[in-house]
């Protein structure tokens, strides 16, 4: 279960630590909420997250490392464990979407989760939202109360980005199994940003005015991922007809996202690549049952977008 790799100075975690944290710390919190005894079932569905762990002092790109890991395991005739988390103390070749840079120095939480795509298509639509919810919950747990999710899953504190995700699919070369490579970057204790990022990036420690115990935060973030991804599986198993008419209910991941997001009601500029090619401005009317962004255009018409990004204006 535990894969030992050279650990960075601030990340000496093992998979067993994650498992213990999920059931000893996260479960009582969730049980005490509205989920009661069902909380354990949800976490059992999600506990594959972090079931194996690699910690590195330094990597180029965690997602590239994950890709190579899948390819090499399959070429050896082995199957790849879903839920493996790859962490790095620093990333030297990290990038954001498109050609954007992502600064990943020491002090942040940088990594990738390998997720075998066993969710149905509609649940997969909510996966991206679940990631933002997990990061926002973990950051709030540290005491940053004014952090919020911006559609789809950026996490901001007072308008400055603290956490972001990149999800890419990768097909194994031999078994053709499809994985989501869930790349995450969270500014935890790093405080210095390159000039081009200075005005819109921040870290948790800046927001708190104090440094954060990185391993503790890491455990909590992974446990929150386990919960929110677990919810996607739990709902599929418990309510097989859920997606036949999704407008009839509100998925718990979506409900939580709505509570943690400050996107609803905002005036935004929308674009597939909103920085390089902004397309139009609109007001956010809501989020559809599948996670699409409902936008009211200036002429009063409403459209729903499932792909793209926004900036508040």
């Amino acid at each position: 279960m535990v894969v030992s790799m050279p650990a960075s100075d601030n990340l000496r975690l093992e998979a067993a630590d994650i498992h213990s944290y999920i059931f000893d710390a996260e479960l009582p919190r969730r049980r005490a909420g509205s989920w009661g005894d069902s909380a354990e079932k949800v976490l059992r569905y999600g506990s594959f997250v972090g079931s194996s762990l690699e910690c590195h002092t330094r990597l180029g790109r965690a997602m590239e490392h994950a890709r190579l890991h899948i390819d090499s395991e399959e070429k050896r005739g082995w199957s790849v464990q879903s839920g493996r988390v790859i962490l790095a103390g620093t990333l030297t070749g990290s990038k954001g979407r498109f050609t954007r840079s992502w600064h990943a120095p020491e002090g942040g939480l940088w990594g990738c989760l390998l997720h075998g795509t066993t969710l149905t298509a509609p649940s997969t639509l909510l996966l991206s939202l679940a990631l933002g919810v997990a990061a926002c919950e973990a950051i709030r747990q540290m005491g940053v109360r004014d952090c919020a999710v911006r559609w789809v899953n950026d996490v901001l504190v007072k308008g400055e980005k603290v956490a972001g995700f990149l999800v890419e699919s990768h097909t194994g070369p031999r078994w053709k199994e499809i994985f989501h490579l869930i790349g995450f970057g969270i500014n935890v204790n790093n405080q210095v940003f390159p000039k081009e990022l200075e005005s819109w990036a921040a870290s948790i420690s800046q927001a708190l005015g104090a440094s954060v115990n990185l391993p503790d935060f890491t455990l909590d973030f992974i446990a929150k991922l386990a919960w929110n991804i677990g919810l996607l599986y739990y709902i599929e198993a418990r309510y097989p007809d859920w997606w036949e008419d999704p407008s009839e209910h509100c998925h718990p991941v979506l409900a939580r996202w709505r509570k943690l997001s400050d996107t609803l009601g905002q005036r935004v500029v929308f674009g597939y690549d909103v920085i390089e090619k902004p397309q139009f401005s609109a007001r956010v009317a809501g989020v559809s049952s599948e996670g699409g962004l409902r936008l009211v255009l200036d002429d009063g018409r409403e459209i729903t977008e499932y792909s793209g990004e926004i900036r508040y204006i």
Partner: peptide
């Protein structure tokens, strides 16, 4: 889709791309 990027592998007859029917910003 929902900030999730999936590579699409071509399945079909080999040849050259003659016509493009999509615009990168439009569903």
């Amino acid at each position: 889709l929902m900030k999730r990027d999936t590579p699409i592998y071509y399945q079909g007859e080999p040849g050259v791309i003659h016509s493009v029917y999509f615009d990168p910003g439009v569903s």
